[in-house]
Design a protein around this nucleic acid. Structure first.
Length: 120
DNA sequence: CCGATGACTCTGC
DNA sequence: CGCAGAGCCATCG
């Protein structure tokens, strides 16, 4: 029998999920930003893995996580893609052709720095 | 240990 | 805007 699925509570993943959960409603953030906020700079892929293997968190606003260019990371046409666009729209986030204007809905670097206390 | 894969990102053309 | 290459790191065979 399998000891334990890879979905075990890891400190790293916990931080990632926490960073995702910290995204304000109606706003979006990139994988890289989440990774950085989770203390894992350069591990954007890890964020994707965490989200992919973290369906155990129904309250997790995973739909607020987009790629660095504001596009939905999921393949267009997939269930997840539609779901993400739907949830974003429900929060007032304008999704245009599977893409979100980070300039309008993305977290401002300056404001982010002020709120999160990142070194500047 | 090595090669392949992936909800990533940056740079160059 | 699109495509290709390289860098990145964790997981799997």
């Amino acid at each position: 029998m399998v000891a334990c699925p890879p979905a075990m509570m890891n400190p790293q993943r916990t931080r990632i999920l926490a960073a995702v959960a910290a995204i304000p409603r109606g706003r979006v953030a990139s994988y890289g930003a989440i990774a950085a906020r989770a203390g894992l700079p350069g591990r954007a892929r890890l964020v994707g893995r965490a989200l992919r293997e973290a369906p155990a968190a129904p309250a997790l606003p995973w739909h607020r996580v987009l790629r660095a260019d504001g596009r939905v990371a999921l393949p267009a046409g997939s269930a997840g893609f539609a779901e993400q666009c739907r949830r974003l729209a429900a929060e007032g986030v304008t999704v245009r052709n599977g893409r979100v204007a980070l300039a309008a809905f993305g977290l401002d670097p300056d404001l982010d720095r002020a709120l999160w206390g990142s070194p500047g």
